[in-house]
């Protein structure tokens, strides 16, 4: 009985995290804020769902593959979020009027002004004006 309640709570919690992603996708104003809603709650959501599965089955042999599944997500989701976010910033898919401050923009502007070769060369400003490297 207790066991059923725990599994149900975990399942509903995991589903609610998907709902958070859906609501965020529709309601947030620009690409980068949507990214936050879309990718991040899923990390917790998948954890809750996998926990539900583990509690439901109560077998230890299942734990490694569930941990593996979660670790894969931990390793991959920040990378894809970074790639999409960076492409979004470089192609100006964000609304600057919604930013209270933008410290990367200063760096990009300074790098665009003059040559920035030599040892102090940074990776950040390259192609900042529009992803010209890709």
């Amino acid at each position: 009985m207790v066991h059923d309640v725990v599994v149900s709570a975990l399942l509903i919690g995991g589903a609610l995290m998907s709902l958070a992603a859906g609501i965020g996708l529709v309601r947030f104003p620009d690409l980068l804020s949507r990214m936050h809603a879309a990718t991040k709650p899923q990390v917790l959501g998948l954890l809750l769902l996998l926990l539900a599965l583990a509690v439901d089955n109560r077998s230890w042999i299942l734990v490694p593959v569930l941990v593996l599944c979660w670790v894969f997500q931990l390793l991959t989701s920040p990378v894809s979020a970074h790639m999409v976010g960076r492409a979004g910033y470089r192609t100006r898919h964000l609304r600057r009027d919604l930013l209270t401050l933008d410290e990367l923009d200063d760096v990009v502007a300074r790098a665009a002004d003059g040559d920035h070769g030599g040892p102090g060369r940074t990776d950040a400003p390259d192609g900042g004006a529009g992803g010209d490297r890709t």
Binding site: A20, I23, G24, F28, P29, H36, V43, G45, D102, L104
Partner: peptide, 22 residues
């Protein structure tokens, strides 16, 4: 933080302020 993002999505939505911080 997940709960917070959920809450922001429901209550604040389009009136959100963001920042790029170094």
């Amino acid at each position: 933080a997940s709960v917070q993002v959920f809450w922001l999505a429901v209550t604040r939505g389009p009136t959100l302020r963001n920042a790029v911080v170094a």
